[in-house]
Amino acid sequence: MFYYLDGTVAELLPYLAVIDCGGVGYACKTTNNTLSGLKKGQRGRVYTYLNVGEDVFDLYGFATQNELNSFKLLLGVSGVGPKAALAILSSATPEALAMAIVTEDAKTLTMAPGIGKKIAQRIILELKDKMAKESATTGLDFSGGAAVNVPAFTNKATEAAQALAVLGYTSQEVQMALKGVDVENLPLEEIIRQSLKKMVK
């Protein structure tokens, strides 16, 4: 229904941003990361997700499409609702989330308020399983290829590719995003960050 909202930031509250678009104030539940990039009285844009259900009509807004994609990905995990997803993305960027899933780092996820070890492990298990299914159905190949401008697909490049796959990108998108990124010398999270930036241009 809504793709994004672009207007004046009318109000900033904990986990909430109000965007004034043509005299209508849209209250968007959001993350600390998105809030940190908005300034009251200035123009702001958020990519939105509308959650509609019985007695529920909530609008969520995110600074980037990557954060929105991560939010929707988390909602697909059994037992993870919007509140938990916001908490996770308030303490971890999409890049950090993807890296935590690939490296099975439950500790990063449990840093979010209300996220215990069991739910963190479930998130890792279900999203890694989703990644494996994506690999099987799309033929995602991490062994190398001409589209990737590196001598061979190193361990870091493989982990970065897996992290991008976790976030829902296709094999072709992953290979194009990694092309030209210094996978040999950059830290894993920076490889993921640079690749994500290329995909949203």
Rank of each mutant, 00 (worst) to 15 (best):
Ala165Asp: 03
Gly41His: 04
Ala10Glu: 13
Asn149Thr: 14
Tyr15Ser: 10
Ser135Gly: 02
Thr8Ala: 07
Lys130Thr: 15
Lys201Gln: 13
Leu50Trp: 15
Val166Pro: 11
Leu188Gln: 01
Leu89Gly: 04
Ala136Val: 13
Met111Ala: 09
Val80Gln: 01
Val200Thr: 09
Thr138Ser: 15
Cys21Ala: 11
Asp55Ser: 15
Val77Glu: 01
Asp105Ile: 09
Ser91Val: 10
Asn149Asp: 12
Leu127Gln: 13
Asp55Lys: 15
Val24His: 11
Gln42Gly: 10
Leu59Cys: 00
Ala106Glu: 09
Ala160Phe: 03
Leu109Asp: 01
Asp182Leu: 00
Arg193Ile: 03
Glu67Leu: 01
Tyr60Thr: 06
Ala147Met: 14
Tyr3Lys: 03
Ile119Ala: 07
Ile101Ser: 08
Ala17Thr: 14
Thr64Lys: 04
Ala157Ile: 05
Asp55Glu: 15
Ser135Thr: 12
Lys118Glu: 07
Thr170Gly: 10
Leu50Thr: 09
Gly145Pro: 10
Val9Asp: 08
Ala146Trp: 11
Asn155Arg: 12
Thr138Ile: 09
Leu164Cys: 06
Asn185Pro: 00
Met131Thr: 06
Ala147His: 13
Ser36Phe: 15
Pro14Lys: 12
Ser78Asn: 15
Ala96Tyr: 05
Ala120Asn: 02
Val52Leu: 15
Lys29Ala: 15
Phe62Arg: 00
Ser36Cys: 10
Val56Tyr: 07
Leu127Arg: 14
Gly145Leu: 07
Ile119Trp: 05
Val9Tyr: 05
Gly81Cys: 06
Tyr26His: 14
Ala27Tyr: 08
Ile119Phe: 04
Asn149Lys: 14
Leu38Asp: 06
Leu35Met: 14
Glu11Asp: 15
Leu127Ile: 07
Ala92Asp: 01
Asp20His: 11
Leu50Arg: 14
Gln42Leu: 09
Lys83Ile: 01
Asp182Gln: 05
Thr93His: 08
Ile101Gly: 07
Lys117Met: 08
Glu11Val: 13
Ser195Phe: 00
Asn149Leu: 12
Val56Lys: 05
Val183Cys: 06
Gly7Trp: 07
Glu173Arg: 07
Lys107Pro: 05
Gln172Ala: 11
Ala96Pro: 00
Glu173Asn: 00
Lys72Asn: 14
Asn155Gln: 11
Lys133Met: 14
Gly116Val: 11
Asn33Trp: 03
Val174Ser: 00
Gln172Leu: 09
Val150Arg: 09
Asn185Val: 01
Thr110Ile: 04
Phe57Met: 13
Met176Gln: 13
Met131Val: 01
Leu178Asn: 02
Val77Cys: 01
Ala106Asp: 06
Lys201Val: 09
Glu95Gln: 14
Val166Asn: 09
Lys83Tyr: 01
Gln194Met: 04
Leu68Cys: 08
